[in-house]
Design a protein around this nucleic acid. Sequence first.
DNA 1: AACTATCTGTTAACTAATTCACAATAAATT
DNA 2: AATTTATTGTGAATTAGTTAACAGATAGTT
Lengths: 205, 205
Amino acid sequence: MIENLPPNTVERLSNYRRKLLSYPFQEKPFIHSHRLAHLLKINPAHVRRDLMLIGFTGDVHKGYEIEKLIIEIGKAIDCQHKRKVAFIGIGDLGRAVAEAFNHDDSKLEVAATFRLTAEPEIQFQNVHCYNVSKMKQIIRQKKIDLAVIALPNADVDEITKLIVDAGVKGILNFTSAHLKVPETVFVENYDMMSKLEKLSYFTNE
Amino acid sequence: MIENLPPNTVERLSNYRRKLLSYPFQEKPFIHSHRLAHLLKINPAHVRRDLMLIGFTGDVHKGYEIEKLIIEIGKAIDCQHKRKVAFIGIGDLGRAVAEAFNHDDSKLEVAATFRLTAEPEIQFQNVHCYNVSKMKQIIRQKKIDLAVIALPNADVDEITKLIVDAGVKGILNFTSAHLKVPETVFVENYDMMSKLEKLSYFTNE
DNA sequence: AACTATCTGTTAACTAATTCACAATAAATT
DNA sequence: AATTTATTGTGAATTAGTTAACAGATAGTT
């Protein structure tokens, strides 16, 4: 892991990697900054700068060696160990996010899912789905430290307190609530309605 | 509509409104900038600056009158007419986003949904779900100009071309593809995996 | 009536993010 | 061998976003 990368750079590196993994690098093992930038609809200088930040250098003429680049991005942004993720709420949204995981061979692993309804405890994609009452215990036991909250906005404060107590250090929050967490916990909010209203605003001829 | 608001301000205004709508303003009709900021976990100066940008003024002691503020935010960021939105892909993710709509009385209306599988044409939450083959025709006919793409990444380029030709001016893109659109079309990308990888990076003790 | 406390509105300072622009380099071409 | 062309790596400039700071205002208090 390379320390102190800017947040947006980390996100872009993740995007570069995903894009490159689906790029035919067996046939074309090198890529230029402007080509990659074009694929991602961003500025070529951005690509070069981001790669500079992780100390990856390309060939002045051939460009960047894709296979090596994928590995170096991993060294820069992945953890050594697999991170375990809990999914809280496994309705449409929770399932959608969890499915995205399974198509992706990342260092992140769905370790447990939880839901509010008591009955019954089901399996979801080979992962056990517990009732939230067991959340604290399971998160502690399995040493889970990331969580995705994808619940209709009920009782989110209570749930947040629980999982933070149990050791969760990062939360991807799909509810429109604004979570109360200690400073040590990193929260990434995503509110679909505000994205849509933004879209509406910026497309008004 | 107030022109030239910064993108982040538009998003925050949308958040203020939603938060205020669920605030007991019948009993407490006024709110201070620091109180609203606290609820949203942001800086009070931010709230004041955003409201300044839409020309809304508060009372030096009582604060901002919530009911009026909600209306003024509407005037600032909503369109006059209802905007029609098409949902393309109505799997777990598409349904989740569409559901979020129905709990929200915004100026945005789900006008049609589309899916890849041919059979049968179903109803989803009182909205007809068509096969994508009819997309261009329906979007034109119903004068839809916003779209949410929530598909597993197949053929997204082709679909994008189709809907842009049909008149769509804004796209909320949940696929990890980077859409090829003319400059006049506004695209908002949301890639869950990169958000999660960012979370993982910034919570690595 | 003077004083205190507090909040808005706004300017200014600051920080982060993006983009420009170009030296350095080396392959390809003349 | 000289010239052209194209690309990286990076400092500098620019733009966007956030936060600090405070004048001005006014209710409440002494």
